[in-house]
Lab assay of single mutants.
Amino acid sequence: TEDARKEAKKIIDNGGSPDEAAKFIKKYGLSEDQARELVKRAL
């Protein structure tokens, strides 16, 4: 979702790792793979 993508970008912009961002956005109901893909797109 757009919200999850924004959250991921915010985490990374604040110095978080892509892994942290992926873990965080899994709470939106995404699978591990979906979360990682979304983080990649957010970069």
Rank of each mutant, 00 (worst) to 15 (best):
I11K: 03
E37A: 08
D19H: 09
V39F: 09
K6I: 12
N14Q: 13
E2L: 10
S31T: 13
Y28F: 13
E2Y: 08
Y28I: 02
E7T: 09
F24R: 10
K23T: 12
R36G: 04
K9N: 05
L43H: 06
I12H: 03
P18A: 11
G15K: 04
K26A: 13
F24N: 07
D33A: 11
T1S: 11
Y28E: 03
K6N: 10
D13K: 11
Q34L: 08
A4G: 02
E2I: 10
V39S: 01
G15N: 04
S17I: 07
K6T: 10
K9G: 05
K26M: 15
D13V: 06
S31G: 04
Y28A: 02
R5Q: 13
A42V: 15
K26N: 06
A4Q: 03
L38M: 08
R5G: 08
A21R: 04
K10D: 07
S31N: 10
K10R: 14
S31P: 03
A42P: 04
T1I: 15
A22E: 08
G15S: 01
E37I: 04
S31D: 09
F24K: 09
D33N: 07
E7A: 14
E7Q: 10
I11F: 11
R41G: 12
L38K: 01
N14V: 05
E7C: 15
Q34E: 14
E20W: 09
K10N: 08
K10P: 01
K26G: 08
D19V: 09
K40L: 14
G15Y: 03
K6G: 07
D3S: 11
K9A: 08
G29Y: 00
L30K: 00
F24Y: 13
K26R: 14
G29T: 01
D13R: 11
R36Y: 12
A21D: 05
D3L: 14
E37W: 03
I11G: 00
D3N: 11
D19M: 10
R41Y: 12
S31R: 00
S31A: 03
Q34V: 10
K27R: 10
R41W: 15
K27M: 08
A35D: 00
G16K: 02
T1N: 12
A4M: 13
A42H: 07
K40V: 10
A21F: 14
G15W: 05
D13M: 13
P18I: 13
K40F: 12
P18H: 07
I11P: 02
L38E: 07
L38C: 01
K27W: 03
R36D: 07
A22C: 05
S31V: 00
G16E: 04
E32F: 08
K40D: 13
D33P: 04
K27I: 08
Y28T: 01
A4P: 09
G16I: 06
G29S: 00
S17A: 05
S31Q: 03
E32Y: 10
K9P: 03
K6M: 12
L43E: 05
L43F: 08
N14S: 13
D33Q: 11
K27H: 05
I25F: 04
L43I: 11
N14P: 02
E37S: 04
E20D: 13
S17P: 05
Q34M: 08
D13Y: 06
R36K: 12
S17Q: 06
K40R: 11
Q34N: 04
K6S: 09
A8F: 08
G15P: 02
I11Q: 03
K9D: 04
E32I: 10
P18Q: 07
E32T: 04
E32D: 14
F24W: 11
D33E: 14
S31L: 01
S17C: 00
E37N: 05
Q34G: 02
G15H: 06
I12Y: 05
I11S: 02
Y28W: 08
R36F: 10
D3W: 14
D19I: 09
D3C: 15
K23H: 11
K23A: 14
L38S: 01
A35H: 01
Q34T: 06
E7G: 04
S17N: 06
D13L: 13
I25R: 03
I12D: 02
I12P: 03
G16R: 05
A21Q: 04
A22D: 04
K40C: 13
L30N: 00
A8R: 00
K9I: 12
G15I: 02
D13G: 07
A4T: 02
D33L: 09
A8Y: 06
G29D: 04
A35W: 14
A21T: 05
K27Y: 06
G29V: 00
G16P: 02
G15C: 15
E37L: 08
G16W: 11
Q34I: 07
I25S: 02
A21E: 03
T1P: 11
A35F: 10
S17R: 05
L30H: 01
P18T: 08
T1R: 11
R41A: 15
E32G: 01
K40S: 10
E20Q: 09
A8S: 05
R5P: 04
R5L: 15
R36C: 15
I11M: 05
S17L: 07
D3I: 14
K10M: 09
E2Q: 09
I12T: 02
D3Q: 14
G15D: 02
D19C: 12
I25L: 14
Y28M: 09
E32N: 02
R41M: 15
K10G: 06
R36N: 10
D3R: 14
L30G: 01
E2D: 11
T1H: 14
P18G: 06
K23R: 12
A21W: 15
K26S: 12
E32V: 06
E20H: 05
S17K: 04
R41E: 15
S31F: 00
Q34S: 04
I11H: 03
A8Q: 03
I25Q: 01
D3T: 12
S31E: 04
Q34Y: 06
D19A: 11
A35K: 00
E20S: 06
G29P: 01
E37Q: 08
Q34P: 00
E2R: 09
G29F: 03
R5Y: 15
S31H: 02
K6R: 14
R36H: 10
A42L: 15
Y28K: 01
L38G: 00
A35Q: 01
G29W: 00
L30T: 00
N14A: 14
A42T: 11
G16A: 05
T1K: 10
F24Q: 12
G29L: 02
D13T: 09
D3Y: 12
D19P: 00
R5E: 13
L30I: 08
D33R: 07
Y28C: 13
P18N: 04
K26H: 08
F24C: 14
E20P: 00
A22S: 06
K9Y: 08
K40A: 13
E2M: 09
V39Q: 00
R41Q: 15
D3V: 13
G29A: 01
K10E: 10
S17F: 04
R36S: 07
G16Q: 05
K10W: 13
E7W: 12
I25N: 01
P18R: 06
D3A: 14
K9T: 05
I12M: 12
I25H: 01
A35I: 13
E20K: 02
L43V: 10
R36P: 03
L43C: 13
L38H: 01
R41C: 15
A22F: 13
E7N: 05
K26T: 15
S31I: 00
I25Y: 03
D19N: 07
I11C: 10
E20F: 09
I25G: 00
K6Q: 11
K26V: 14
L30D: 01
R41T: 13
K23L: 12
N14D: 10
K26Q: 15
L43W: 08
G16D: 05
P18L: 14
L43A: 07
I11Y: 07
I12F: 05
E37G: 00
R36A: 09
R5W: 15
A22Q: 08
P18W: 11
A42W: 14
N14F: 07
D3H: 13
V39K: 00
K9S: 05
A4N: 03
L43D: 05
G15V: 01
V39A: 04
I25V: 08
A8V: 14
T1F: 15
D19Y: 12
A42D: 04
D13S: 10
A21C: 15
E2T: 09
R41D: 14
E20N: 04
S31W: 01
E37C: 12
A8E: 03
V39P: 02
L30M: 07
R41S: 14
I25K: 03
K6V: 10
D33T: 09
T1M: 15
E32W: 12
T1E: 13
A21K: 00
A35N: 01
K9M: 14
A35M: 07
S17W: 06
R5M: 15
K26E: 14
K10S: 09
A42Y: 14
R41K: 13
A8W: 09
L30Y: 10
K40I: 12
A22K: 08
K10I: 06
E20I: 05
D13H: 08
K23E: 15
D19Q: 11
E20L: 08
R41H: 13
T1D: 12
G29C: 13
I25M: 08
A4C: 15
A4W: 12
G16L: 07
N14E: 11
E37Y: 01
